[in-house]
């Protein structure tokens, strides 16, 4: 029973982290109709940036996450302006083909260059906090703080998307791009901001990820696929759905690792992804 509960609590943290990392992918796919296969690499880059900020700048992961988010927002805007805004977008199929080519190419280039410069191997941010001990139970303080930071960020994102004009414009563009254009939303600005915001979120999630787990240069593509599972389960462009999706996948992974062995857990997300696409492509919380 205690193992069950422990796994469940761990899954909440992992799921929150998944949501934070994955939601940008959902936004860029929803608003820009671009399947960004390089999304996971921004998480990886954010993790490495946080690692170096901690090692050489002495920044704690929370300050580093803010810094990295700002930097990667700029990088994402540059990436979008330089490459993705130029994609031939005559038809949906052509945009899909060219976006797969360009983002896959970017992903391969980023991963290989990072591995070349970094030298291979995995690493993590060696940031530790003392644990709280309450009677017999030990609360890992770092995990709790990270959970609250992730939840706070997700909540801020939710407020941004539902309460501010820009956020609502983004959501409107995911639902109906033409409709958004008709009511006077500057879809181009929305597109740039969406993409920058998406990769910035992934990068800040990367800093937390590197604090909890380890990162390595070639993790990006598999991670992108896992994040696709998260957003497909939750429904494209749906933040509460993504949160649910993140939790579902994190929990199934944790339980699989516990009951069937850790080497089976990487497969869970992919199975869920394929099943979700086949059974409920609109997402768990989505409507027909």
């Amino acid at each position: 029973m205690s193992a069950f509960l422990q796994i469940l609590v761990g899954a909440v943290l992992q799921g929150a982290l998944y949501t934070l990392g994955a939601f940008g992918l959902s936004l860029s796919f929803g608003v820009l109709k671009i399947l960004n296969l390089s999304h996971g690499d921004f998480l990886m880059l954010g993790g490495f940036a946080g690692y170096f900020a901690f090692l050489y700048g002495g920044l704690n992961p929370f300050a580093a996450a803010v810094l990295v988010a700002v930097l990667v927002f700029g990088a994402g805007v540059g990436y979008y302006r330089a490459l993705l805004a130029r994609l031939p977008s005559g038809s949906f199929r052509r945009l899909l083909v060219s976006s797969v080519m360009v983002t896959l190419g970017t992903a391969l280039a980023i991963e290989d260059l990072t591995s070349f410069l970094w030298g291979g191997g995995s690493t993590g941010i060696p940031y530790r906090m003392t644990s709280l001990v309450w009677g017999q139970t030990v609360f890992p303080l770092l995990r709790l703080v990270l959970l609250f930071a992730t939840l706070a960020l997700t909540l801020m994102l939710h407020v941004f998307l539902t309460r501010t004009f820009l956020g609502r414009a983004i959501v409107a563009s995911t639902i109906n791009r033409e409709g958004a254009l008709v009511v006077g939303i500057d879809v181009r600005t929305v597109a740039v901001v969406t993409f920058g915001l998406g990769v910035a979120l992934a990068a800040s999630a990367g800093v937390f990820y590197a604090t909890l787990y380890t990162i390595e240069p070639f993790m990006g593509l598999a991670l992108t696929l896992k994040y696709l599972a998260v957003i497909v389960v939750g429904g494209i462009g749906n933040l509460p759905g993504a949160f649910l999706g993140g939790f579902v996948i994190a929990a199934s992974e944790a339980f699989t690792a516990h009951y069937a062995g850790p080497h089976w857990s990487p497969m869970v997300a992919f199975i869920i992804l394929v099943l979700a696409l086949l059974l409920r492509p609109q997402g768990l919380l989505g409507r027909e």
Binding site: L83, R86, L87, S98, S99, M101, V102, L104, G105, T106, A107, L108, A109, I110, D112, L113, F116
Partner: peptide, 12 residues
């Protein structure tokens, strides 16, 4: 990285 660069170039 070379593969990636080719892909980006061709794609755009």
């Amino acid at each position: 990285a070379m593969y990636g660069a080719v892909l980006v170039f061709v794609g755009i």
